[in-house]
């Protein structure tokens, strides 16, 4: 993969994250940062896939990273966390696999469709679990901060 392709992917992720934020009517001052949170999560996912870590680990760590980064940004800007993590998650959604699954089910090729179904379940499960992990880390940190005060 060349640098140009990576650049196109990063630009695409940034634009798409911001545009999804506009569809959800996110406040204007949160849009730019939300876009960068999305880019960072996507880059981590892409890097792990390129190194050979596999889709599941890539999505898991990408989701963990998005969760942690969006809490950090939310604290810094005094805004709710969901403004940042919902748009940032969109580039990780397994849209391609979900579409292939539906296509092969519609065409009656069930065995191919089941392969894709398995991929969709694995990827969305790993994203959900990544969110869960980041949420746990966030809660532990909040508890730690409260105890120190």
């Amino acid at each position: 993969m060349s640098i140009l392709e990576l650049g196109i992917e990063v630009a695409g992720t940034y634009v798409a994250t911001i545009a999804f934020g506009i569809l959800l009517n996110i406040p204007r001052r949160a849009l730019n940062l939300g876009g960068w949170v999305g880019v960072i999560g996507f880059l981590l996912y892409r890097g792990i896939v390129l190194v050979g870590g596999g889709y599941v680990v890539g999505n898991l760590l990408g989701a963990v990273w998005i969760g942690l980064a969006s809490l950090q940004v939310a604290r810094w800007k005094h805004m709710p966390m969901i403004l940042f993590n919902i748009p940032a998650l969109v580039p990780l959604v397994p849209g391609g696999q979900a579409y292939q699954m539906i296509k092969y089910f519609a065409l009656g090729q069930n065995s191919t469709a089941f392969t894709y179904l398995l991929q969709v379940v694995m990827i969305s499960g790993s994203i959900a679990f990544g969110f869960l992990l980041s949420e746990m880390v966030n809660r532990l940190r909040q508890r730690g901060l409260r105890r120190h005060r």
Partner: peptide, 27 residues
Amino acid sequence: KYFPFWLQLLASALVSGPLEVVFRHNL
């Protein structure tokens, strides 16, 4: 206040196109 309708339309276009390129590399 919502974003104006034309901006939402533009945003939906800009979710679709870039993500198609990101997912499928089909410029």
